[in-house]
Simulated scan of single mutants.
Amino acid sequence: MQLGELDVILIDGRSGSGKTSLTERLVTRQRLDGGRIQVLHVEDLYPGWDGLAAGSRSVATALDAGGYRRYDWHAETFGDWIALTTDRPLVVEGCGAVTAENLAAAQRWAERIAGAASPARVHAVWLDGSAELRRGRALARDGETFRPHWERWAAQEDRLFARTQPETLADEIIRIEEPARGPVD
């Protein structure tokens, strides 16, 4: 997966699957290659710990509007406007990123980048791994902040993913078996 060959990459998976780590590696590689990139973290759209489905639905709205108000987890309200520009590639990462509606919005957004001269290039990735591995990774990352919310969040994931079926929409499925290492090719 080469970001320079794409307009939009959507990276989805359950908590602890490595979405943010993969995104960070892609961004670093793109910047090392001299490219500019922007990232929409779906967690910036969740209206709190019970907001997975609402945040997922907000991705398409943000792409169509060219920006979004970032959720402030400490103030528990939406705050700063974050603009999304069509002058550089975009990575959308987070639980709920890959849905049919979000893919359609990503396609529209990518068409604004590509223009009439070339086809829009959108790529969806699903990261998957065992619940035990993911839980260990999530708690190692977020510790006591996430521990009381794990079961509640996992139940939201179950409901959302049963409805949206992101693994069937993905262009690529990456199975995790241990912590992410090494560069992304």
Results as ranks from 00 to 15, higher is better:
E111H: 08
D171I: 05
R147C: 01
S118H: 07
A155P: 10
E172R: 14
A155D: 04
Q107W: 12
R159N: 02
R175C: 04
P148A: 01
G143P: 11
H123I: 01
R112L: 14
L127K: 08
E132S: 06
A117S: 06
P166E: 07
A140M: 08
E151G: 05
R152H: 14
R121P: 03
I113S: 09
A140F: 04
R175G: 14
A110W: 08
A124T: 06
A155Y: 12
G129L: 06
A154N: 03
V122R: 00
H149W: 02
I174P: 11
A104Q: 12
A110P: 00
F161I: 05
G136W: 14
A117F: 04
D128S: 10
W153I: 00
R134Y: 04
L169Q: 11
G115F: 12
R181F: 04
T168P: 08
V125H: 11
G182S: 05
E157L: 02
R134H: 02
S118G: 04
W153F: 15
L160I: 07
V125A: 06
E172D: 11
R108S: 06
R141N: 10
L133E: 03
P148Q: 00
R108W: 10
E157T: 12
E157G: 15
T145W: 14
W150I: 00
A120D: 01
T164L: 02
E144V: 07
L103C: 14
D142Y: 13
A140E: 13
E111L: 02
A114Q: 10
F146I: 11
R108P: 09
D128I: 01
R159L: 00
W150E: 03
V122W: 00
A114V: 02
P183V: 06
E178W: 03
E144R: 15
E177Y: 04
P179A: 15
L103N: 11
G182D: 03
